[in-house]
Design a binder for these strands. Structure first.
Lengths: 210, 210
DNA sequence: GCAACAAATGACACCTGGTGTCAATAGTGT
DNA sequence: ACACTATTGACACCAGGTGTCATTTGTTGC
């Protein structure tokens, strides 16, 4: 309420954010220009005019410089999923959640940084691995949500039922596949469309199975 | 034909293989005992009685000590897939291929090393990430096979069609999910069963979608 | 069996990502 | 203005890898 309170965001925090931004921007520019692996932290530190140690104070790992500021956050996805009606089929819930984050991706194709950075990720094995590792963590969170939701409806999955894990894994597989497709030069639809196509593809392909 | 020819596998190669085995065994024992990250290459080198440099001559990265000798090889999976009839639905082909590699996994639960090593992989973030990265490479190979197969049948996918990638991603997602399920203490079915359950789960979940 | 060649090894120096420590400095609340 | 605390640079250190070189040890032709 107190309007005088807003000035509490002191100089300290503001400079911190400013520096954080400057580092990511400088780093991303270098990554795009010379590649991730051939850009050292020293290069970045020098380019931004600070010590190596200080760069590590803002970003605890080199990967964070890339993966820390992705278009959508994991928390967001989990929360959106939790807000879905409990009686909605899981596959549809996931589709809707992915659709909600899609605009964040679509709105960055004009951005000269984010799309190229995605390319950097997918073309750098160690980064791709780290990215997939993150996804796996998210998947796990979603799996737990799927379990919770079923339990809340009074029909919990047995501990040894692979259903929640498998569905989450397949859906996130679609997400990544859609992302890669969307990045191809030939593809000129929206990211949301790519997700739909990917998830429909899986439905169609697995459909004949009993 | 010439029986005298077999001795061509000289001492050199034999010792090389012997040393390779000894290193992996020693390393894996240490990984299982003290964890992957808290075991250094120096520890391994010392335990096996050689220099750090020489360990790196047998395994170019620490990860290779774990991921180099997985139960099934990528090549194998791709070839098995290629041998499937071209008119078989892709999802079924993948299921069959996975079933073929399943026994290799099932036969190792008696092995005191391989199953614990899988646990090490799934509980060490950096290793899991590397593993997923490998999977992604395999997925890409399979995607190409899917494309080839369709092209051979005279109905190639457009370059921008996410179908092959999405289906491959979902199937491998099931594979990993099955693997994780199979590793749980509560699960006491075969790995093949876990794969079936996972793939059926996805079919069921995505079924309602248009 | 011996000389000539190639592979394997250890020792050493070096690069890169990442962490702990410490003294100096600069922002903050009173 | 003053005590308090966060931020910084400098430095030392660890672990994963790589390049190099001299030495040893299998291999091969004679």
């Amino acid at each position: 309420m107190m309007t005088g309170n807003e000035r509490k965001v002191g100089l300290r925090e503001r400079t911190r954010q400013a520096v954080t931004r400057e580092i990511t921007e400088t780093a991303n520019a270098l990554f795009i220009e010379r590649g991730y692996e051939s850009t050292t932290i020293d290069d970045i530190a020098e380019a931004v005019g600070m010590s190596r140690r200080s760069v590590f104070r803002y970003f605890s790992t080199k990967e964070d410089l890339v993966l820390g500021k992705l278009a959508f956050s994991g928390q967001e996805v989990v929360e959106q999923f939790r807000n879905r009606p409990a009686d909605e089929p899981v596959w549809e819930s996931l589709r809707e959640v992915f659709r909600l984050i899609a605009p964040a991706v679509d709105n960055l194709d004009k951005d000269a940084v984010a799309a190229p950075m995605q390319r950097v990720i997918f073309s750098t094995p160690s980064l791709l691995a780290a990215y997939l590792g993150m996804q796996q963590g998210l998947q796990d969170a979603i799996m737990n949500e799927i379990r919770d939701r079923a339990a809340r409806r009074g029909a919990p999955y047995p501990k040894s039922d692979p259903f929640p894990r498998a569905v989450a894994a397949a859906a996130f597989g679609c997400l990544v596949a859609a992302q890669q497709t969307w990045l191809e030069d030939e593809y000129d639809e929206t990211f949301a469309k790519a997700i739909d196509e990917a998830m429909d593809a899986v439905a169609a392909a697995s459909g004949r199975a009993g």
